[in-house]
Design a protein around this nucleic acid. Structure first.
Lengths: 209, 209, 209, 209
DNA sequence: TATGAATGAGAGTTCATTCAT
DNA sequence: CATGAATGAACTCTCATTCAT
């Protein structure tokens, strides 16, 4: 009847995309796989042809996104040298860029973590803890070397991470569809500028000399 | 037959409590009204005797919690005088105290906001925006009067709010059940100390002179 | 609209009855719980109000029927005295009466045994083996005491049991709805007569002197 | 990629074999056509290339097996002479040999008969009735000629048939994989011996002089 | 020959809710 | 006040089958 919205053979991506949208809008438990399949322009059965179920859709999404975050952190720190401020800035940059480029996925990861199945959650909890350690080590090092003067490094770290993460909740990309709707001054802020701003904030939070 | 877990007449509260627990653990869509009734030690029908439905349980919880936040902000600002730093500190205190004393409810409010029914959501959106304005006005005022030197007041505001809000995700109250298990240095930190720490962070974020 | 086929509160039995019918007609996997609920004149949800699921319907049916068989065997042997022929006759009577009075359930038990869930199956396998031993002991005893002259007691036992069990496949109770349709001479044979016939056969199979 | 488990061109048989296994293990409605294809080491589409569907797999299996039973009965009776005992023995032999050599198929035929589609079922019902008549005629003849003294020929016939048919439920072929595991005395009994035993039983059941 | 992609119908089960008492 | 009984809609997932290549 109507021309098929999805070209033959490309069902997998269509479903992944639809799942991402639906999880973002309604949450995991609020999303029905019927809705996901419909969004993808496919039948319910096609979804099961490509994926093993609803849980797998969530797991794949979160896992891929979390892994990317780690890759970004790793790369950023590898080229950051030894200076605590530079290292802190590198991590801020990695986090901000991740939160902006993976705005939807990173938000889903944050809010639907508990809906991972236990085995996957445990595995990924490891990654999370490792990330937390990256931040903690840098702050501790900065304090130890007298670069950072903050009295409560753990709170500083948490504050910085929370601030960076929150970006995904409000940021709207540069070239939006409705540029005239300019009631939000930071709409369309370029990412490098955003990184600079949050790096500055982070350095103040740790009280960098 | 079995001794009633719930004293007569206190059914309403028992249900409210059970709903709070369940929403916190599994989210709104992940919670079943049967599970809530069971947690409360009551029958499904008793739940409907006291409340009009699942939606109402969520709305009441979020509304009450959000209203309390506003009361706290209001009171804090009323006694804060005119100094920008003092006013910012007052708002930080109100927010931190709220996030700690209403740890569970405030988290639910944040994550289940989208599941409010449209009418309620719209109404409460107004409160949210008002809160955002409280913060924004204080920061703007501080910048205008030269008390705060930060270049990007909106980002500063967002960072502070995010940091304060995040407290609910990790804070564990003072008198825990296992005080010896001291592997988390900030476990059981007293609330006034917490307020001081986050006030200091906030002042650094706005670059207060 | 139409008067309810099922009086309030009596849903449990209606469903049990419907499940028995459906399992008998179509087998376990061939029966849908939608069909079972419809046969019972109830909604799908009512089925789940009374039972925990399809599996439980099968298990309850088979378990109850199997237990009854054992009760019958037990009682029959308790009053049978010591004579091997009498004891064999007692077991034949118990089996025939069971197969006739529980015609449908016993057939389901036989054909759907493999669809029990593993835990239940294992438990009931114990009962089955015990029944087999009852038969085997009697035949062995009769042979040992020279009462039975058959050369292959295991085959004799199996033949007798198979013959008794098969009754459920063809027997039609005495007062049928259409007594004129007399093309089957044994239709409506009285149970005591049936017992006598099969007792005689059993005694010939073991070659009773 | 992977070495094909199934040699080219032998797909048809592989599927028939797999269907037989699956129907035997799980029953018709409990078997999925996907599982059958997987067992056969073929794709779902290959199954449909060779067969027209699930129903046909069942029909073919039952039909072929039932036809073979008739061939065996026919042949056995053709060479059996006129003596009632010899003729009864011939039918016992045909049945036992069939039940042993087609152990799996004959069991499926018995238990899945109702799942044949109506047209096929009706046709094959004719064969069944004819078989029943073969037995009945022989018994009646023996009784009429004074060779068999049993009082209830129909019950005798049913008992004999049931006993022979039951063999398929317990018999284990001669050359098992673990011949030492001799806890079942009749394991591996040679077929001619089995035939002798059941012939003897049958003759006792009809009370042959 | 043989395949991977796609489908509609239906499976068992759980949901929030209402009714009769 | 409070209950057990009952419901219809929706859920995730599997089914046998067909299509396009």
């Amino acid at each position: 009847m109507s021309s098929p919205a999805v070209p033959r053979g490309s069902g997998r991506d269509a479903i992944t995309r639809a799942a991402r949208e639906s999880f973002a809008e309604r949450g995991y438990h609020g999303s029905s796989i019927r809705d996901i399949a419909a969004r993808a322009g496919l039948s319910l059965s096609a979804l099961y042809h490509w994926h093993s179920g609803k849980q797998e859709l969530l797991t794949a999404l979160i896992e891929e996104s979390t892994a990317e975050y780690f890759r970004r952190c790793d790369e950023a720190l590898r080229t950051a040298g030894d200076d605590p401020a530079a290292r802190l800035g590198a991590l801020v940059r990695a986090t901000v860029e991740y939160r902006v480029s993976r705005q939807v996925e990173s938000t889903i990861a944050a809010s639907e973590w508990r809906n991972l199945d236990p085995a996957d959650r445990e595995r990924l909890d490891g990654l999370r803890a490792a990330a937390s350690r990256l931040w903690a080590d840098i702050v501790a090092d900065g304090v130890a070397r007298g670069a950072f003067a903050c009295e409560h490094p753990d709170d500083a770290r948490r504050a910085i991470v929370a601030a960076c993460n929150a970006i995904a909740h409000w940021y709207e990309p540069e070239q939006g569809y409705e540029p005239d709707q300019g009631d939000e001054p930071d709409r369309g802020l370029a990412v490098p500028d955003l990184v600079d701003r949050y790096t500055a904030i982070a350095l103040r939070v740790v009280d960098c000399r």
